[in-house]
Amino acid sequence: MPPQSRSGSQADTAATPPPAEHGQDARLLTEAVTRLRRALRASIRTDYPWEQLPMAQVELLQVLAEHSPARIGDLAARQRLATSTVSGLIGQMISAGLVARAVDPADRRASAVTLTDAGRAQLAAWAEAHERRLDAALGALDEADRAIVRAALPALFRLADHLDT
Results as ranks from 00 to 15, higher is better:
Met1Gln: 06
Pro2His: 14
Pro2Leu: 15
Gln4His: 13
Gln4Glu: 14
Gln4Ala: 13
Arg6Ile: 15
Thr13His: 11
Thr13Met: 14
Ala14Arg: 11
Pro17Asp: 07
Glu21Gly: 03
His22Arg: 12
Gln24Ala: 08
Asp25Gln: 14
Arg27Lys: 07
Arg27Phe: 04
Leu28Met: 09
Leu29Gly: 01
Glu31His: 03
Glu31Lys: 01
Thr34Tyr: 14
Arg35Ser: 06
Arg35Phe: 10
Ala39Ser: 12
Arg41Lys: 11
Arg45Cys: 03
Tyr48Leu: 01
Trp50Arg: 04
Glu51Tyr: 02
Val58Cys: 07
Val58Glu: 09
Glu59Trp: 13
Leu61Thr: 00
Val63Gly: 04
Ala65Asp: 00
Ala65Leu: 05
Ala70Tyr: 02
Ala70Met: 04
Arg71Ile: 11
Ile72Gly: 00
Leu75Ser: 04
Ala76Gly: 11
Ala76Trp: 13
Ala76Phe: 14
Ala77Pro: 05
Thr83Glu: 12
Thr85Ala: 06
Ser87Glu: 03
Leu89His: 12
Gly97Leu: 08
Arg101Trp: 05
Ala102Lys: 15
Asp104Val: 03
Arg108Lys: 03
Arg109Gly: 14
Ala110Asn: 12
Ser111Asn: 15
Val113Gln: 13
Val113Arg: 09
Leu115Pro: 14
Asp117Asn: 02
Asp117Pro: 04
Asp117Ile: 09
Ala121Phe: 09
Ala125Thr: 01
Ala125Leu: 07
Glu128Leu: 06
His130Trp: 01
Glu131Ala: 01
Ala137Val: 07
Ala140Asp: 13
Asp142Gln: 05
Arg150Leu: 15
Leu153His: 07
Pro154Tyr: 09
Ala155Arg: 01
Arg158Glu: 05
Leu159Gln: 01
Leu159Trp: 02
Leu159Ala: 05
Ala160Val: 05
His162Ala: 04
His162Ser: 05
Leu163Phe: 07
Leu163Thr: 03
Thr165Ala: 12
